[in-house]
Simulated assay, not measured.
Amino acid sequence: MSHVDGKARTRSAVTLTVLAVLFVIGVAWAWSTVTEPFPEPEEQPACVESSFAAGDRITPGNVLVNVLNASKTEGLAGETMDALVRKGFAEGTEGNTAASTTDRGVVIWTTDPDGPAAALLKSYFGPGTEIVEQATAEPGITVVVGEGFPGVKDGKKGVKAKDDSSVCSPPAV
């Protein structure tokens, strides 16, 4: 019987040792996982240059828009941005500026004043809206709203590109 008891004791000791090693490995793995820092969110670009061939349709969702308030009316940039987003435009930044606007109370700043994105955006402000070739610190097209701004109207659901062009579009999610 002592021979059987010795084998059983040896087997029990080996089993307990293996279980103890597995336990220590599990605790070490769990500790390293719990104390690992959270991954940093990947920074998304504000926009990507989307190419459109002549004849391609550009819709509000393809256009990133920024709005600057040049009036004394607090919150005008935010209200205008909200209205443009409801119309389908991609939301850029909003803020204030000391720049002036025309009598219509709105000016569009873009690096491509003859481009389809500017033409589409202009349709939401009316035919007298001035489009100025002007680069800004923010990507996309910038709308400057000032005193006398009548608000955002219903515009075109899309325009066809007359020539090959690129548009600052929101990144695909």
Results as ranks from 00 to 15, higher is better:
residue 152 V to G: 05
residue 38 F to R: 12
residue 70 A to V: 01
residue 101 T to I: 07
residue 144 V to P: 04
residue 44 Q to R: 12
residue 142 T to C: 13
residue 38 F to P: 14
residue 126 G to R: 03
residue 75 G to F: 03
residue 71 S to A: 07
residue 165 S to R: 07
residue 164 D to K: 06
residue 36 E to R: 15
residue 86 R to I: 05
residue 28 A to M: 11
residue 152 V to T: 09
residue 45 P to I: 07
residue 118 A to S: 12
residue 137 A to D: 07
residue 39 P to C: 00
residue 160 K to F: 05
residue 74 E to I: 08
residue 45 P to L: 02
residue 53 A to S: 15
residue 125 F to W: 04
residue 123 S to P: 07
residue 137 A to F: 14
residue 140 G to F: 01
residue 99 A to H: 06
residue 77 A to H: 01
residue 41 P to H: 08
residue 103 D to L: 04
residue 22 L to E: 13
residue 109 W to F: 13
residue 4 V to T: 11
residue 166 S to N: 03
residue 85 V to D: 05
residue 112 D to G: 10
residue 82 D to G: 02
residue 125 F to H: 01
residue 145 V to L: 00
residue 82 D to M: 07
residue 102 T to A: 03
residue 9 R to S: 12
residue 34 V to T: 02
residue 74 E to G: 00
residue 7 K to Y: 10
residue 161 A to L: 02
residue 89 F to N: 00
residue 73 T to W: 07
residue 8 A to R: 13
residue 116 P to Q: 11
residue 126 G to Y: 02
residue 116 P to R: 11
residue 44 Q to P: 07
residue 78 G to C: 11
residue 167 V to I: 10
residue 97 T to Y: 14
residue 60 P to D: 02
residue 84 L to E: 01
residue 42 E to Q: 14
residue 138 E to H: 06
residue 110 T to A: 13
residue 70 A to F: 06
residue 92 G to P: 09
residue 107 V to F: 00
residue 151 G to F: 10
residue 6 G to E: 14
residue 168 C to F: 00
residue 169 S to Y: 03
residue 102 T to H: 05
residue 2 S to Q: 09
residue 10 T to Q: 11
residue 25 I to Y: 10
residue 128 G to E: 15
residue 42 E to D: 14
residue 13 A to I: 12
residue 153 K to W: 02
residue 146 G to W: 11
residue 19 L to C: 12
residue 168 C to I: 08
residue 124 Y to P: 01
residue 94 E to N: 14
residue 169 S to P: 13
residue 79 E to C: 10
residue 119 A to E: 08
residue 14 V to G: 01
residue 47 C to P: 03
residue 156 K to A: 09
residue 170 P to N: 04
residue 55 G to F: 09
residue 86 R to P: 00
